[in-house]
């Protein structure tokens, strides 16, 4: 693992809001092409950490390197090199599929020809070419999730952050979504993902679990299950977070 290229490096990250310490000395690394599961109970400090990693919030102290840049000092450099997909798809419901690609492609600074090429590439891959000129609101939820993911990686980021990407989708689409994640990681993009589905934690290469602002467990699902003498990741999570 250590000879793999490091994409995220977090060292002694502390984030305070007044007297409240949301992130209390976080230390971890994530590598190129890795699927990294970022788990924790509600209120454990996950969202705070993700915001910092994405350059939306700055650390109180500590160093956070993402895609080769110090997020605290160069948040804009980081933003250009990452993709982000939020819980409830970040696409515009009143734009067509093509327009959504064009809008985000423009924000990421892609050329018109690159946007065209990437749009065609993803629509073909998802077998959704017939949706190109459809308004997003007319498209089923499962398809939207896959589109939102494609839009988040259309500028070929070094790392993509997925915040509960599969909430509310049906069990087949959920699995198809994870196949997309696998494929993306296999092509070298690092995937940083949060989820409340514990079976999805098993799909990650490594998993960290946060509680009360700290990372209390970090390892492969197999290691964590062994360390906590548990059959499933759900049991591990319950033992840690309860």
């Amino acid at each position: 693992m250590s000879n793999r290229e490091k994409i995220i490096g977090v060292s002694h990250l502390v984030k305070k809001f007044g007297n409240f310490t949301a992130n209390n000395d976080l230390n971890f690394e994530v590598f190129k092409g890795e699927i990294f599961g970022f788990l924790g109970a509600n209120g454990a400090g996950k969202t705070t950490a993700i915001k910092i990693l994405c350059g939306l919030s700055s650390p109180t102290s500590g160093t956070v390197m993402v895609a080769g840049w110090d997020v605290g000092k160069y948040p804009d450099r980081v933003k250009e090199r990452i993709g982000y997909m939020s819980q409830r798809f970040s696409l515009y419901n009143d734009l067509t599929v093509k327009e959504n690609f064009r809008f985000y492609g423009g924000i990421y600074g892609l050329s018109a020809s690159a946007i065209k090429e990437r749009t065609s590439y993803f629509l073909k891959k998802l077998e959704m070419e017939q949706t190109r000129d459809m308004v997003l609101s007319k498209i089923p939820l499962g398809w939207k999730q896959k589109l939102a993911f494609s839009v988040a990686i259309m500028h070929d980021p070094q790392v993509v952050f997925l915040d509960e990407p599969t909430g509310g989708v049906d069990p087949i689409t959920r699995r198809q979504f994870w196949e997309l994640i696998y494929e993306t990681a296999h092509q070298g993009t690092t995937v940083f993902v949060t989820t409340h589905y514990m079976d999805e934690a098993e799909y990650c290469e490594r998993v960290s679990i946060m509680a009360e602002g700290r990372i209390v467990a970090l390892g492969t699902p197999a290691q964590l299950k062994e360390n906590y003498n548990a059959q499933t990741m759900n049991e591990v999570f319950v033992k840690i977070a309860r």
């Binding site: 924790g40 109970a41 509600n42 819980q87 509960e164 909430g167 509310g168 409340h196 514990m198 759900n234 999570f237 319950v238 977070a241 309860r242």
Partner: peptide
């Protein structure tokens, strides 16, 4: 329980 962690759900 949507969006709620596994322990709080329990």
């Amino acid at each position: 329980t949507t969006g709620v962690d596994a322990v709080s759900r329990m």
